[in-house]
Computed example of a mutant assay.
Amino acid sequence: MRQFFFFFTLLCSVASLQAAGPSAGAPSAPVQHPVVGSWTWTLPGKACTENLHYQGNGTRRGSSGEEVTQSRYEVSPMPSLLGFYRLTETVTEGNGKKDCSGDLHEAPGEPVTRFIQFSPKKDQLIVCREESLKACFGPLKRAPQ
């Protein structure tokens, strides 16, 4: 019984140290989200490519057909139990032209939430309207750096 109590106390101590995080003087390595980088997707049967560049500072540049946009984004740090990251983007600037699908998109200032899921190698992703594979597009491929 004493061994169990000792082991339990040791386990709780380690857990509390991990929860406390690094000390004030310890350097912490930045955590880069897998969405950060450049992504491309060409619509099937069309010669039109969508390009998205997510920067680590929470901004995104994009082009699709004639459309060019700048956005702010927030993405969940971890995927849900279904394997999707919640991605909310708010267009801050856009040229108001049509994208590869021929659509005009959201006016600046309107947040749009999508759900993204990565391939196991994190070199491809799909974009979905819900946490489901029913209404998605992609895969977008990570562009070489």
Rank of each mutant, 00 (worst) to 15 (best):
D99C: 10
G102P: 03
H53Y: 03
L104S: 14
L140G: 04
F7A: 15
V91L: 08
E89P: 00
Y54A: 04
P77G: 07
Q124T: 12
Q55R: 14
P139C: 08
G21S: 02
R129W: 01
P108K: 07
A26I: 12
E106Q: 14
G83W: 11
K122R: 10
Q55A: 08
R2H: 09
A29G: 04
Q18T: 04
F5C: 04
D99S: 13
Q18C: 12
Q145L: 02
S38W: 03
A135C: 02
N57F: 09
A20I: 07
S64P: 11
T69Q: 00
L82H: 01
G102W: 08
L10W: 12
S64N: 10
T49A: 08
A135P: 00
L43M: 10
Q18S: 15
V127Y: 08
E130Y: 11
S80Y: 12
Q18N: 15
G45C: 06
S101M: 15
A107E: 10
D123F: 06
N95Q: 09
K98Y: 03
E89A: 08
E93D: 14
S64C: 06
G62S: 13
A107R: 09
T69V: 11
G58M: 06
L140P: 07
F84Y: 15
M1W: 14
G96M: 14
P34R: 02
L11N: 07
I126W: 01
L87Y: 07
L87S: 02
Y73M: 06
S63W: 04
T42L: 03
G56M: 05
D103T: 08
H105S: 11
R72V: 09
P120N: 02
P79L: 01
N95M: 12
H33A: 04
A20K: 15
V68A: 12
E66W: 04
N51D: 10
G45E: 08
K98I: 09
P27N: 08
Q18H: 09
G25V: 04
F7E: 08
P79Q: 04
S28D: 12
R114W: 05
V91G: 01
L43P: 00
A20H: 15
K141R: 15
Q117D: 02
E93L: 01
V31D: 12
Q124Y: 06
L11C: 13
E130L: 07
S132C: 00
V91T: 13
C100G: 13
Y73E: 10
G62C: 00
A24D: 13
A19V: 03
K134I: 02
S23T: 14
K134M: 05
W39N: 03
L140K: 14
C128P: 02
Q32T: 15
E74C: 00
G83E: 07
M1K: 11
V68W: 03
L104D: 01
P22R: 11
